[in-house]
Structure formats: C-alpha cells, structure tokens
C-alpha cells in the first residue's frame, strides 16, 4: 500500500447519544484507494460511527477528532461534509415524496460540486450511471425512494454515490435486508465505482458482501471500539467461526 499520509483519520473518537457513550475511542486510518470494512455485532456502535461521520445532530462527539484531508470535520454541518467529498449511504434511506429522483440528485450534485449543471446535461449524466448500475431508467422520474422496495432503495444509494462521485464513501449496512441476488447486484455496483482516488468504508454485520467489495482491511468493532484489525482473512475467519467464537477470542486478546 501507498505510504502517503492517510487522507481520512479517526483519532480516539468518543461519541454520546443522549448522554450514553456509544463510541469509546475509535481509531481508523484510511488512505486513498483503500477499502476498509468495519464489522461487528448489533449494538457495537457501527451505525453510530456512520451517523457521526456525516454529522447527525443527535450524535455528540465528546472527544477525539475526525480528520479529512487534514481538517477536523467534527464541527461541520452535514452539507459541508458532503461538499468536502464525503458520502454516506444510509442503512435506512428515507423516502422524499414529491421530489423526483432526478430532481433530488440534480439539486444534490449542484450543492455538492457548487456549480450549475443544465437539466439536459444532468439527465445524460444520471442515465449513464443508471445504465452502468443496471437500474431501470423509470426510477429517474419517480419520487425518491417513495414506495421502493428495500433492495431498490439500497441500489438508489449506490446510484447517488455514482452521481455525486465522493472521495470517501461510508456505506452503512448497505447489504442489510437484501437477498443474495440483491447483495451481489449492490456489491458489484459498488466495485464498479471504485477507483484509486476514492476510498470506501463499508460497515456490515455479514461478510457476504465483502466477496464483491473486497476490502484491503477488516476491522472488528465491539462495544464502541475497534478491537481487532486485519486483512481480508479476518472476514473469512469471522465467516467460518461466527461472531460468538471470534468475539470471545478477540476480547481475551484485548483484555
């Protein structure tokens, strides 16, 4: 791997929600072009980390820092983080009735890139990405996520990532609620968008999607902290042993 400075660094991050500490000192260092997987059982703090990285107002960082291109972003609003090039794929994407997918993404792209893009130009851009991800063009005119199935919503998140072209994509349980075929479609979609200037942090409970989005590093998060890190083999180990066995081993080592 490259030796340059990590462009994304989480340093001893502590986060509370309603005065309960959920993250208890998370450290993570991501370089350009890397894929990191954060795995962990339910309640380990994975989604809290995702929300915190994007600046959800209910999550309060009480200590530590999150550096993006050397700048601490913890005080930044979610929209500013998006402008910096951070993208969060939501575990539970929201429906925005009354706003078409096309309009939503055009407005979003204009805001993120801070430049005008004609309706015609954008339409072309969007349809290209839809074709690339094998998403029916019919979705462009539909209200965003309104009445979409779970799988359709997740594919829309990937479409958004394709359109917005972030430098860092945080994918929060992009595979949850999907059947095997949908996981494959979503996973292959993500892989097709990856390039050397981009990084991905993929948060997941299950190892399956990692066969399509192969991480350079795998981190196991338990109880608000990353307890073990390794390569892809760690995900394979988890797949073979399951959380119960692996966690016991992990906790013994770390204590």
């Amino acid at each position: 791997m490259a030796t340059e400075q990590p462009f994304f660094l989480i340093d001893d991050l502590h986060v509370e929600i309603e005065e309960n500490e959920i993250l208890r000192g998370v450290d993570l260092s991501v370089k350009r072009g890397e894929i990191h997987a954060i795995m962990g059982p339910n309640g380990s703090g994975k989604s809290t980390l995702a929300h915190t990285l994007m600046g959800h107002p209910s999550y309060e960082a009480t200590a530590g820092q999150v550096l993006f291109n050397g700048e601490d972003i913890l005080e930044r609003d979610p929209n500013d983080r998006a402008k910096l090039g951070i993208f969060l794929a939501f575990q539970y994407p929201l429906a925005i009735p009354g706003v078409s997918t096309l309009n939503f993404l055009r407005t979003s792209l204009k805001a993120v890139k801070q430049e005008e893009i004609s309706a015609r130009q954008f339409r072309k851009h969007l349809l290209e990405k839809m074709d690339l991800l094998k998403i029916s063009r019919e979705f462009a005119g539909r209200y965003l996520n309104d009445g979409f199935s779970g799988g359709e919503k997740k594919r829309m998140e990937i479409l958004q990532m394709a359109v917005l072209e972030p430098e860092l994509a945080v994918l929060d349980e992009i595979d949850s609620g999907l059947d095997i075929d949908a996981i494959r479609a979503v996973g292959e979609g993500i892989s097709s968008l990856m390039h050397p200037e981009m990084s991905i942090v993929i948060i997941t409970h299950y190892p399956r999607i990692l066969h399509y989005v192969r991480p350079d590093y795998v981190h196991i998060m338990v109880d608000g902290k990353i307890r073990q890190s390794g390569g892809f083999e760690l995900a394979e180990e988890l797949e073979a042993k399951g959380y119960d066995v692996l966690l016991k081993e992990v906790m013994q080592t770390s204590s």
Partner: peptide, 27 residues
C-alpha cells in the same frame, strides 16, 4: 431524519427544509 438525509446530500438546512416542504405540497 429527513432533514439530515437531505443535508447529507449537500443542501444547507434551509434549502433542505424547503425541498421537503415543496415535496410535501407537490404530492
């Protein structure tokens, strides 16, 4: 949550809220 979702896509708080209100009526 809707507001956060739209803001996470680059819109500032007021613009995000406006989009949601306009969508609300557009239905």
């Amino acid at each position: 949550e809707e507001l956060f979702y739209v803001m996470a896509h680059g819109l500032n708080k007021n613009d995000a809220a406006r989009m949601l209100v306009e969508g609300f009526f557009s239905e």
